[in-house]
Computed example of a mutant assay.
Amino acid sequence: MQLRPELSPPVIPSDRINDLCAAIHSIEELLESGADASAEIAAFNEDTRHTYEPYHFMTYWSSRNVEDFALEAARPAWPKVPDVSREELVEIVRRIQSMDADTNYYLLLLETNTVRPGVSDLIHWPPPELVDAPPEAIVDEALRYRPVAL
């Protein structure tokens, strides 16, 4: 299934990625030297509309490279699509399960567009009844969740 543009990862120009990589390295160097990088982090967050903290700049390398961090920063922090359909969510889960190149973006889409806490656990650490379940069953379980009003 083809996803509509609002659900597809935005294409980020290489110049933008390079600029963000340079900013990440600059902030990382400031933090490693013990300097105050709060203004640079605030500017980075203002530019990217994310809420990164010093921790993110000091530890990103433990799970990804700087280009992946820059790509994440260049994309929307919370890509909410108000009218996402069940079929679209099924396709998003299918892409997550297939380890698509943009899996992290699709995980963010799933988390942002469903209300079930820990929805990614249904894929990565499923309850016994969802082990090896098709995407449709995972989405149905996610959509079945109803928050409790306090």
Rank of each mutant, 00 (worst) to 15 (best):
L122C: 10
V93C: 07
S33E: 12
L89D: 11
L30Q: 15
L20Q: 05
K80G: 05
L71D: 08
Q97P: 03
F57H: 04
P147G: 07
L30G: 14
L143V: 00
D100P: 13
V93Y: 04
G118S: 07
E46Y: 08
N113I: 02
L108P: 02
A74H: 11
L150G: 06
F44W: 01
A70W: 06
S85N: 03
L143R: 02
L122W: 10
T51Q: 14
P135N: 03
I41H: 10
A35H: 14
E111C: 05
M58L: 15
W78L: 04
L122I: 09
S26W: 00
D19A: 14
D140E: 15
I17H: 07
L107I: 09
E141P: 00
L110N: 02
G118L: 03
L7N: 09
E32A: 08
R75G: 09
N18V: 08
P126R: 11
A39I: 07
V131S: 03
A73H: 12
W61F: 00
V131E: 11
R75A: 10
W78A: 04
I138D: 06
R144T: 08
M58I: 03
M1P: 06
E6S: 11
I17N: 04
D19G: 08
F57A: 03
S62L: 13
D83K: 03
R49D: 08
A35E: 15
A137E: 15
S26R: 07
I12G: 05
N18I: 04
